[in-house]
Design a binder for these strands. Sequence first.
DNA 1: AGTTTATATGAATAGTAATTCATATGAATA
DNA 2: TATTCATATGAATTACTATTCATATAAACT
Lengths: 106, 106
Amino acid sequence: MKKTLTTICYHFFTNLANPTRLAALEQLMDKPMSVNELAQTLGQEQSMISHNLKPLLDCNLITVENQGKKHIYTVNKETIAPIFKAIENHAQKFCPKGGKCLTGEN
Amino acid sequence: MKKTLTTICYHFFTNLANPTRLAALEQLMDKPMSVNELAQTLGQEQSMISHNLKPLLDCNLITVENQGKKHIYTVNKETIAPIFKAIENHAQKFCPKGGKCLTGEN
DNA sequence: AGTTTATATGAATAGTAATTCATATGAATA
DNA sequence: TATTCATATGAATTACTATTCATATAAACT
């Protein structure tokens, strides 16, 4: 199995293939937020948000700036925006009726 | 949890977050191939390739044309190419040293 | 019709990742 | 420095997904 593009993309996609992380990213597209702010907005536990932000941070899909106790997370729009856009385009053009592509049902 | 972009993207990324499927897509970027051709090229079992092509097909990331017994699979470059490109750009710009982003090591 | 070739499917197992809960760290403030 | 607030970490459980192996379908050819 080739080690180049596939290897790069695998961890990248694995990172993004998680509803909590995607929801977090989606919120952060609106504005930078702290962990608790995200937790409240998404209705999830603080520890869960924290756990899930880590891989996003490791892969530089988000950045963090510590303001005292609060850690403010910012999405890397330069990377995330075009990818989300590409998927929206795909969904519109190739999966207009949704179906398996959106629901995963088989 | 929001149901719009997150839902669309979740199944999309889940689909792509698999080394076998990524390797298959990468091969298909070169040229359309049959299942056995892919299996041989990737050194994997036919049934494994077949299993993994299904979700890609369901999500229209590939298309198939049946030529008699052979089923020739073609990648949807319009969708896949820009996404791979975006990830390459990200890796170059934000993860120049690879590290956690590429290896997944923690 | 029987045989070969190509692909798909089902079901069980194995392998990975997500979530939870308890606790630790660390910064600010009284 | 004791306390509170904000976040991170560890470890166990749960849940999910991939892979394998056996078998089914389906087309072409004898």
